[in-house]
């Protein structure tokens, strides 16, 4: 059986710990059997001032950093509702996994993750608690949010086009003689080959696969509903 990352290289955990604790002195690391838990209070700091604090627990799963850290607010302060982006098991939906290349790319550290999406999320929560909107907006729930994301990323609202792109993003390889997903009818190599190659370095295959499956089941549901007339 494959060894867990924190046992493969114990110095990695030590380095991560000292890096995180140099900034967040109240976060503590607790290695468990096949994962690592981080617990404590997370301060929302701006210009040296602590604007708020949240009691959090972060779980680094056994296949971290392949799998994203799981963030939970454990102080019982944020409602466990869709509108507050906390699912019923208490997990925070910080961002859409497909956009992890932007905020949690390979090589980025746990400290980057805390200073980036985790901080963004809690700045937003504090504002929402005070009756303000999410500072950068929010994705719609579930599949609709996926469509919104790819519509923005690809510059099209056409679901069929989005699905063709997702199909190519899901594949282990793409070939130049294939038809371009944009719908021009041209071969990929004569159309959006470079753009697609670039996208494939960003969106992970497994994320694309998952999103594609979600959108396919969504369209099936819609067809069933629409076909009932």
């Amino acid at each position: 059986m494959k060894k867990h990352w924190h046992k493969l290289d114990p110095t990695l955990l030590e380095r991560m710990k000292s890096e995180v604790q140099s900034v967040f002195s109240n976060l503590h690391f607790y290695p468990a059997k096949d994962r690592v838990f981080i617990r404590g209070s997370f301060p929302v700091i701006h210009e040296g001032k602590i604007l708020d604090r949240y009691s959090i627990e972060i779980e680094l799963p056994r296949n971290y950093p392949e799998s994203l850290p799981i963030v939970r607010e454990v102080g019982g302060r944020i409602p466990q509702t869709a509108d507050r982006h906390i699912n019923p098991t208490g997990e925070a939906c910080l961002f859409l996994p497909d956009e992890r290349w932007k905020v949690c790319h390979p090589g980025s550290s746990l400290l980057d993750f805390l200073n980036g999406p985790v901080r963004n999320f809690f700045v937003g929560q504090s504002l929402v608690e005070l009756g303000q909107p999410w500072p950068f907006g929010e994705w719609s729930h579930a599949s609709v949010g996926i469509i919104e994301y790819y519509a923005e990323l690809l510059g099209t609202k056409d679901l069929a086009t989005i699905l063709r792109y997702l199909d190519y993003l899901s594949k282990p390889k793409i070939k130049g003689h294939w038809k371009c997903p944009c719908g021009s009818g041209r071969r990929l190599r004569n159309c959006h080959f470079e753009e697609l190659k670039d996208l494939r370095t960003k969106v992970r295959q497994d994320d694309a696969q998952r999103s594609r499956q979600r959108l396919i089941s969504l369209t099936k549901t819609l067809e069933t509903v629409g076909g009932g007339e």
Partner: peptide, 12 residues
């Protein structure tokens, strides 16, 4: 002041 904004999502 946030350099890389993120938007929260929700998956039931």
């Amino acid at each position: 002041g946030i350099a890389t904004p993120t938007r929260p999502w929700f998956l039931p």
